[in-house]
Nucleic acid binder design. Sequence first.
DNA 1: CACATATCTGGTCGCTTGACCAAAAGTTTG
DNA 2: CAAACTTTTGGTCAAGCGACCAGATATGTG
Lengths: 229, 229
Amino acid sequence: MAGKRDSLVSEPEARAPAPAAGGVTGRRAGRKARETRERLIEGALLALCEDGVIGATTRKIADKADVRLGTLHYHFETKDALLLAVLDALGARLAQTLRRGVAGSRDLDECIERALLTDWAFAEDNMAIQIVQYELTLYALRTEGAPWMARRQYRDYVRAHVDIFGVHAPSGRSAAENVERLSQLVMAGIDGVILQELADPDVARSRMAVRGLIDSMQALARSLGLIVA
Amino acid sequence: MAGKRDSLVSEPEARAPAPAAGGVTGRRAGRKARETRERLIEGALLALCEDGVIGATTRKIADKADVRLGTLHYHFETKDALLLAVLDALGARLAQTLRRGVAGSRDLDECIERALLTDWAFAEDNMAIQIVQYELTLYALRTEGAPWMARRQYRDYVRAHVDIFGVHAPSGRSAAENVERLSQLVMAGIDGVILQELADPDVARSRMAVRGLIDSMQALARSLGLIVA
DNA sequence: CACATATCTGGTCGCTTGACCAAAAGTTTG
DNA sequence: CAAACTTTTGGTCAAGCGACCAGATATGTG
């Protein structure tokens, strides 16, 4: 099962704390190298926000990171690897924000509300990054050996929702499945609203949409038997 | 208000049937020219499906359209203009499919169901095109003078839903507004599900999601007072 | 049929791109 | 401090890109 998986990037935090290859060309990674690597990722994100996947050339990225072009290729064997590393970083950032936003919810109703509001607030505050996120996801789907990253990205994010919803849901197999369905629809809804806001910006409308989404999802949770009160 | 709007492409079917510039360089368009133009758009779509926005070079497109490279630039002053023309064609195709799919619905319940099923069926049958659609939308957002195309694309599609839902909804101002909100959420939901299917393909799961979406949207229509029965 | 115009061709141009490398500079270790 | 390494530098390269154009060809009109 764990057969040949020669992708462009390695998974972010492998279980082993050993100096498992972090993505660097193959040499051992030192302190400074790690810093430069992070700076390159940050620079890439900057360039991506400004010019999109198409316009973000290696030179622009190196420039934003204040690094010579050659250095970029020392840390990332290929441009693909760098861009996909950015996607990874974005995913981690997002999931973390979500977990913080829902901390302390009392019941599933509140949890659903907070999750959607958090998702949306993050998006509204980082619209430029949202575009990049979608661009990179599509980019991963197009890149040989990378589609699994898009998949993992999505699954991680669904799992984040499942985890936080699960706390307030009844136990049992069918309940767990319903939490999964709920999470999927929550994510689909929020993604759709973000897409709308990108294509036709109107914050007031989008906020209303999120409100409607919250109501719908709470109603769904009820009809799925996840909320009994 | 209708001030300077110097975009890359002209709107598809202007009101006047006059030989208003159709996008061709500036010369008058004849029968054969129109054919070649269409063939180029089709070729571009083909190339886009295969290689994405990034990989679809003018040469590949010309090749798919069985046309010399120079011809491409005779019909489209710039590559941007051609790609945006493809986006336009896709939008038209989609809206048309939707209208057909819901024809003959008896009430809003059925109409919502049919609309979502039609939306989804089209997407499921044309996943490659769906990616292209998203790629091009993001591309338009990035292209100077083109973001209005993404906006129009979205608005046209919302309007298509509003039109078909409106037939079965009560009249009155507030009902109309609620139909608009319903349409927005329907679109957001379907877009989100499609995005999920792209990132992590699982047709069975997506179909279930669409099912859940239908239920939720029907419930929403009810709570908005759009369905009285 | 001849003329004017619309359409197409094939070749070329200048430029950007991602990748590469030999050598310099910096850092760690014994 | 010196040897062994990691990291960075700056310059180079071939490939591929979008755009362009002068001239050949098809098309329709009087």
